[in-house]
Structures are given as structure tokens and as C-alpha cells.
């Protein structure tokens, strides 16, 4: 495998750069974990190396080398399991848990990022081999751009309107708009909620959005992100402050109640809007004939 230095090198370097670039966008899913970053950079390096040597291996007629790609796929599936397991265990003690759907989404993202790294390395090394390294680098950079575009996905802000709505009480029932959130027994808690709680309504823009917001896992992800970004007064043994999102069964709009540390409504709306639409919650009934028929 002499004479492939530039090919392999450009593949590996561009692949690792791609991984670093994708780590940047992790602030919500993985807050500042230095060790987590090292793990993912290490695995990204392996993925980049695999992608980079694939073309030289094929040129040299080392077809068995392709089986290594299968090995890599296995390895990356393990990453998904690893992420899922560790997040699920951390979730058990979280006051406002992420929920299984959100965790599955994060785990999938971490798996697929390695494939994107491998793809970037493959394209970059391939073009370096076919032409020269500047073209390879250029291809790698566009690979990074394309993969970051592909990984973007939708946010709640894209599929729904988010408007403020003050929580209030009817007897002991806490309501947001006309949607019952929960029954709060203690007068002291009710007074505090009236004073400090925030509420928003999430109104789906179409039937697809309604189906997405129907998912309890999706709602839990919204709550978790809102509670992370604004803080939550939720405490062990004080369930009165649990953030809750409930559906209006007639219209499918969602009422969200939270007791934030920072009682500012605009950041809350922003936090709700920036929540990603989870892959596992994503359903598109409007793409089917019965779904469209029912949606009149």
C-alpha cells in the first residue's frame, strides 16, 4: 500500500474534522463532558481511518478489507447501545427525565454520526486518489456541509405555534387554557403556582404536527429541555412542581406547565421551539390517503 499516503491522510483528517464539527452541536444532548468528547473523538478517528483506507484497499484488490466495514458497523451499533444504556441509567435519578424516546434519538444520532464520518473520509480519500489532495479536501468539506444539513431535522418551532398562557386554578384543578394539568391539594402550593408558574400552549400547525405532539416521549423531551434551560423548582418529595405537558383531547394542542427558576416567558417559548422533533415520534399521517381524507 505504498503511495497512498496523501489519500489515507486526507481521508482521516477530514473525517476527524467532521466529527469535531458535529460534536460542537451537542450542547443540549451532552453538556460539557470532556471524557465523552474523548471517547467520541477516538471512535471518530477509527471511523475516519476505516473510510480512508477503503479505496486504497480496493485498488490493491484487497477485497477482504471490505469485511472490516462490516466490523465497523457492528462497532457503531455498540456505540448506540452504550449511549442508550448510560443515558437511561442517568435518567433514573433525574428530576425531569429525558424519557426513552429522547434517549433513543440521541443514541441514534451518535451512531449515525460515525457513518457520516466514514462517508466523509471515503469521499475525501477517493477524490484525493482520483485527482489530487486539494480536491479531496474540498470534497471532504462539502461532505461535512451536506452531513450537517442532513442531520439538522425539524424543531417544534417548525411544526407548531407556541404562545404564552397563564396557568390558573378552578377549585383544586390546575388548568392552562382549558386543559387540566393536575389536582393540587395544598393551598400554599396553589398560591405559589399562581405567583410563579409559567405556561405555554403548543398549537400544531397541521395534522402531521398533531400526531407528533401526541407522542408522550416528544412531550417529555420538550419538558426536559425547558427544565434544563430555565431551571425547574422540582425537588425530591415535592411533586407539586413537576413540569407537565397535557393534550387537549379535542384539538390536539398541548398545554405545558412549569415552575422555572427563571420566570421569563420568552426564553421558555424559545426553549420549547428549539426542541428537536424526535425521530421516534415522527409520523406523517398526511402522506397517506386515509390520513388526508380524515384531515378535512
Amino acid at each position: 500500500m505504498e503511495g497512498y499516503n496523501a489519500t489515507i491522510l486526507s481521508g482521516i483528517i477530514l473525517g476527524v474534522i467532521a466529527r469535531i464539527f458535529m460534536l460542537r452541536s451537542d450542547y443540549r444532548q451532552f453538556p460539557g463532558y470532556p471524557h465523552g468528547h474523548v471517547t467520541h473523538l477516538g471512535l471518530g478517528l477509527i471511523a475516519a481511518a476505516l473510510g480512508a483506507v477503503a479505496i486504497p484497499a480496493l485498488i490493491e484488490k484487497e477485497y477482504t478489507a471490505v469485511t472490516f466495514l462490516a466490523l465497523a458497523a457492528q462497532q457503531f451499533r455498540d456505540i448506540r447501545n452504550m449511549e442508550r444504556q448510560s443515558l437511561a441509567e442517568l435518567d433514573e435519578l433525574a428530576l425531569v427525565p429525558r424519557g426513552k424516546d429522547y434517549i433513543e434519538g440521541i443514541a441514534r444520532v451518535f451512531e449515525s454520526r460515525n457513518y457520516l464520518v466514514m462517508g466523509t473520509a471515503l469521499i475525501s480519500s477517493g477524490l484525493t486518489f482520483a485527482t489530487s489532495w486539494p480536491y479531496g479536501v474540498l470534497a471532504g468539506i462539502s461532505g461535512i456541509a451536506i452531513s450537517s444539513y442532513l442531520m439538522k431535522g425539524q424543531n417544534i418551532g417548525d411544526i407548531a405555534e407556541v404562545v404564552p398562557s397563564k396557568p390558573y386554578f378552578k377549585g383544586s384543578l390546575l388548568l392552562v387554557d382549558n386543559i387540566a394539568i393536575m389536582n393540587v391539594g395544598l393551598q400554599e402550593s396553589r398560591d405559589k403556582i399562581i405567583k410563579e408558574a409559567l405556561g405555554v400552549l403548543i398549537k400544531p400547525k397541521d395534522d402531521n404536527a398533531r400526531a407528533i405532539l401526541n407522542s408522550v416521549g416528544q412531550r417529555q423531551a420538550i419538558l426536559q429541555i425547558a427544565a434544563t434551560l430555565l431551571g425547574s423548582k422540582m425537588e425530591v418529595g415535592e411533586p407539586d412542581w413537576t413540569p407537565i405537558a397535557r393534550k387537549d383531547i379535542d384539538t390536539g394542542k398541548i398545554a405545558l406547565y412549569i415552575m422555572p427558576i427563571e420566570p421569563d416567558i420568552l426564553p421558555l417559548i424559545k426553549a420549547v421551539k428549539m426542541t428537536p422533533v424526535l425521530e421516534s415520534s415522527k409520523v406523517l399521517p398526511l402522506k397517506s390517503a386515509p390520513g388526508r381524507q380524515a384531515a378535512d
Binding site: 377549585g171 383544586s172 393536575m182 393540587v184 391539594g185 393551598q187 411533586p239
Partner: peptide
């Protein structure tokens, strides 16, 4: 009633609900 409900709820980590007929659960 409020006081007792608060104390017991904090001890057993439960939520107080008011049935609006003089009964807290």
C-alpha cells in the same frame, strides 16, 4: 388539614390532592 397534609406528604414523598369535599388524599 393543610399542615398535616404538608408534613405527611413531605415525609412519604407523595402529592396532596384535594377532593373538594373536605378530604385530602
Amino acid at each position: 388539614q393543610e399542615r398535616v397534609a404538608l408534613l405527611v406528604s413531605r415525609i412519604i414523598k407523595a402529592m396532596v390532592h384535594d377532593l373538594e369535599n373536605g378530604v385530602y388524599i
